[in-house]
Design a protein around this nucleic acid. Sequence first.
DNA 1: TATAAAACAGACCGGTTGTCCTGTTTTGTC
DNA 2: GACAAAACAGGACAACCGGTCTGTTTTATA
Lengths: 224, 224
Amino acid sequence: MARHAQKRINDPEGMRRKVLDVAEETFQARGYHASSLGDLMAAAGVSGGALHHHFPTKKALALAVIEERVAAAVDETWIVPVKAAASAREGVRAVFEAVTAELEQQGFVRGCPLNNLAHELSLADPDFRAALAGIFTAWRKAIAGKIEADQQAGRERDTDPQRFAALVIATYSGAMSMAKTAQDAGPLRDCLAALEWGASQAASSQGEPGARRRRRVLRRYGTL
Amino acid sequence: MARHAQKRINDPEGMRRKVLDVAEETFQARGYHASSLGDLMAAAGVSGGALHHHFPTKKALALAVIEERVAAAVDETWIVPVKAAASAREGVRAVFEAVTAELEQQGFVRGCPLNNLAHELSLADPDFRAALAGIFTAWRKAIAGKIEADQQAGRERDTDPQRFAALVIATYSGAMSMAKTAQDAGPLRDCLAALEWGASQAASSQGEPGARRRRRVLRRYGTL
DNA sequence: TATAAAACAGACCGGTTGTCCTGTTTTGTC
DNA sequence: GACAAAACAGGACAACCGGTCTGTTTTATA
């Protein structure tokens, strides 16, 4: 009975991707609860039927964002660079500096997507919490593992890997939280300086592999 | 025309306080957007008219919670104890330990109320952001000031006060974020240990003034 | 090309949200 | 005790929310 006026371009995976793109950005900018499905539909140019087809519920959509996007962002901006660095400390320092620089260039701070969602959703739902906790664990494991590798290579002495990793992640997360509230990257710089790891300004990494993709992620996030 | 069945007990300031109590706890447990005014009214046993009388909008209520409660909580749990401590480092260590102990005793982590609200509301509204940023600034100023006092008294060498304060707050905030997501106080302990400030276990502070009130606040929060 | 399944479109609905409004009761002041 | 102002009670309401439902179009398979 009803006539469908709009032309149809079945683009499997393409439409799903578009929804995820919009959801990722909207959740990052406004949070989960403040983002309505209507907003997402409008921003993505997607009908309610399409959205519901790919993501039966809002929760399912958020879960997909967490597992497919947030996890990937942490991987690209933190895990990969740290693993590829000369040492754990140097890798951490480089990421800190890269993020800070990107922040200052953009002029605003949206915060770390992982922490943003973690604060809002960890207590709201066990599934959310589990997914988010898994990302934190992987993050921490990567840094701790790098320290252990450094130790076996004689580059690090008796630093406790787990504690070191916790300190790095906590400091970064908290500094980003302060920066978001102040809308100023200062806390990031201050914290990196306060960690006082010798190292002056090493190579201003820009040529090594993966840097391009990482910068793209950073920019999309208004900073991780 | 309409008959009012319920007895009226005009309790100026008392009803306002009750609403703030409930709002403070509910915002802490479920966040701002996930807490409806209906929930608050029911939990506080307050009519819509009463709520609207004291707080014209939901935003006004949240602003009051931030300015009157969250700020006070940071003051009681952090600023006062640190200022009263023998040194900045010792004060920070004591607060870290007190909070961690309370967390472990309670068995669950609701996170830091300041950071919880900061993440959800900093980008949502300039007024929210300003109020939250002010608390962060006061917090940081208190710690930095203590370091400066230590330096003038010869207890601290060339530590940068602002950077030190930023590191402490960031580490604490981030560790609490990790702890909330993991529902485990471990990250707090790990971070305190990783900060490796000599100090073994000093006096397990319980007798000094203000401790009672501080513990009450901590308990109410399911930890700051 | 027949056909089942997947990929969409778009209307629809019950419930909830924040806010407003009207009216009643209490309180303070002279 | 008169009276204005503050402190409430409680309903009303329009907007919106997330989810469902029916139906149409495309794609895959054979």
